[in-house]
């Protein structure tokens, strides 16, 4: 039995070390599938998530960069974020809040945050209140080398997608990746 147990523990260790626990995503997105084989890089991606209702969420990994982005957003909108809020922002995943609700969102508890995520309309993208442009701009300044990725739901409508792409183009980001599933992969795997 000893060799088997050895093997079992070896595997346990392997899986424990390789598993990366996904932080709670506020939106569930069913990506379209494609034959493209290029994997998404592990690091250095600014991700814009667009869900089936056309709500836009923003995500980037790296606590330092997130803090930097928040500071830039704060200075643009004349808002100040205290240390607690900054820390909270750094550890959260995707954010889809208009600026006037961001403070409330950061101070809310986990449960309240879930409710807010369901109710939110995402980051505003319309031309009168184009907050996404400022998000993208701040992120590009905080992390100039990061590549851009759009993770859209298959049911997302084209006008929203076009609008987001046009905002990226306005920010001189003309190359970006569309995140897809491998063709034939089970749909449920997100």
């Amino acid at each position: 039995m000893t060799p088997m147990v050895d093997l079992a523990f070896l595997l346990v260790t392997f899986f424990m070390l390789t598993t990366k626990f996904r932080p709670d995503e506020p939106v569930i997105v069913d990506q379209p599938s494609s034959v493209s084989q290029i994997p998404l890089p592990d690091k250095g991606v600014l991700m814009l998530t667009i869900d089936a209702n056309g709500r836009v969420f923003f995500n980037v990994e790296g606590q330092q960069i997130r803090k930097d982005i928040l500071a830039r957003l704060g200075s643009h909108f004349n808002m100040t974020f205290d240390e607690k809020e900054t820390k909270r922002f750094a550890v959260l995943s995707s954010i889809g809040m208009p600026m006037n609700k961001l403070k409330e969102y950061l101070n809310a508890g986990d449960e309240e945050r879930k409710i807010m995520n369901l109710a939110t309309k995402g980051i505003p993208i319309d031309s009168t209140n184009n907050e996404l442009a400022i998000w993208v701009n701040s992120a590009r300044k905080a992390a100039p080398r990061f590549s851009l990725a759009i993770k859209g739901d298959r049911e997302a409508d084209i006008p929203t997608i076009k609008r987001v792409i046009s905002i990226l183009q306005d920010n001189k980001a003309n190359r970006f990746a569309l995140i897809t599933n491998l063709e034939g992969a089970p749909e449920a795997a997100k």
Binding site: A8, L11, V12, F15, M16, T18, T19, Q31, S34, S36, Q37, I38, P39, L40, A149, K151, I165, S166, L168, Q169, D170, K172, N174, R175, F176, A177, L178, I179, T180, N181, L182, A185, A189
Partner: peptide, 23 residues
């Protein structure tokens, strides 16, 4: 072992690169 095998997803999301013209 079972738990970790079940929860691990090896398939990484794929991407499709597109380049839009400079606006």
């Amino acid at each position: 072992l079972t738990f970790f095998i079940m929860t691990t997803t090896f398939s990484k999301p794929k991407t499709m690169d597109i380049t839009m013209p400079v606006k």
